[in-house]
Write a protein that binds this DNA or RNA. Structure first.
Lengths: 217, 217
DNA sequence: GTCAATATTATACGACCGTATTAAAATGCG
DNA sequence: CGCATTTTAATACGGTCGTATAATATTGAC
């Protein structure tokens, strides 16, 4: 079956190029040349460039949110009920798919970058093909956090989820720069350890969610 | 003096257009038409599109970091020494310029969006014209946080600063969406109250920096 | 093997892009 | 005023873009 191959080759090339250089900066010709297929294939399979973008983002975003839901469900069944799931595991389930996208089939650390790109360039609009899943995910976690923090305003919890999602967004890119600058050294700091990063951001998020101020000063 | 007017008109138009639609998506013609000046003015005053972008970003980024440094200095002189500045005020000084850009002459809430755009599209590279100021700012705050947390690994503190900066980045855009989704309602939630947002994100950041876990479960 | 459906290719079209060139106009100074 | 400098304007150029069209090739069912 040739049809599947071509379509997937295009998506594969689009994924890498879009993530690396952005949607506007990559031409349909760039994609088809990289994929080794004909220019017109994009129109045929995706209806045009915009369709290709939507499909590419969907193939990146949906597995993340599916993985989040899966992890949450696993936690609930494992501990019997939502309110028995430790907060740290809840937060980890929420963050892990973003830091470790490979675990849900989303390759490469370019994922966050492409997602950020799309969100910003599309006026923070979740692509239609991913919206219902996103809603489901947000609501599931919101409900879980509401169980853990019965006294806290639900809106505040959602805000914290957004803060948490944002925290990790700059880490891949700016994090390296900032770390480099602050340490004063010019040499590249190299790849960031993902497990350590996950632990860091979970700890940080955990404190933010906890909502209690540390007793310094 | 006509020269200043034209240059400023271009920067003004570029600011709005770039923030709203992105750098790639806005043509030099869009800018000059909006500004009501001739197409060639951009080449003349900025050397080309790239020069215009750099200048626009600089005019948005530098005041933010200058304001951050200014607030920090004020706090130090006010309280006598760094270690006497309450942590909450330190975090507020770091966050406030980003949430309230108008206070340092950076108009409109499009600032964060344009900055995010630029950082992502430029591979998280701070523009050369803003780099030294950025470095100065990061190092000043890093030093201050090190005073407040003498036992904490400096690298961890920088990470927390990056987390904090990221937290607020999605709030303008995705925050609205998420809040809307989670509440289940379809209607637009309207403009976000900035003072409330600052308070929220400061509180959240404060907890993250505190590094102590809340005693839920 | 035939044939309709599906998939791929080659190619052309019109539109818009960023920049350079050249001329016109405005400005500042003696 | 007169003139050199700076600024604005009109326009042309080469290139690339996304898309549509038409022809060719491949597939799968009978």
């Amino acid at each position: 079956m040739r049809l599947v191959e071509t379509r997937d080759q295009i998506l594969d090339a689009a994924w890498n190029l879009f993530a690396e250089r952005g949607f506007e900066d990559v031409s349909v010709r760039d994609v088809t040349n990289t994929a080794g297929v004909n220019l017109a294939s994009v129109s045929y399979h995706f209806g045009g460039k915009e369709g290709l973008i939507q499909e590419t983002v969907k193939h990146c975003m949906n597995p993340i949110n599916e993985y989040r839901i899966k992890l949450l469900n696993e936690l609930v069944t494992m501990h019997g009920s939502v309110d028995e799931v430790p907060l740290v595991e809840l937060v980890t389930a929420f963050m892990r798919p973003v830091v470790m996208p490979d675990e849900c089939g989303v390759r490469s650390g370019l994922m966050l970058r492409m997602l950020a790109r799309y969100l910003i360039e599309s006026d923070y609009t979740i692509p239609p093909a991913s919206r219902s899943l996103y809603t489901e995910m947000i609501q599931a976690y919101a409900k879980a956090f509401m169980v853990k923090f019965p006294g806290v305003d639900p809106l505040t919890l959602v805000k914290h989820m957004v803060f948490a999602a944002g925290s990790v967004m700059l880490y891949h890119g700016l994090g390296k720069v900032a770390l480099q600058l602050s340490s004063g050294s010019q040499e590249d700091i190299g790849e960031i350890d993902r497990e350590e990063m996950l632990q860091d951001v979970v700890e940080y998020t955990l404190c933010g969610f906890g909502g209690r101020r540390h007793n310094v000063d």
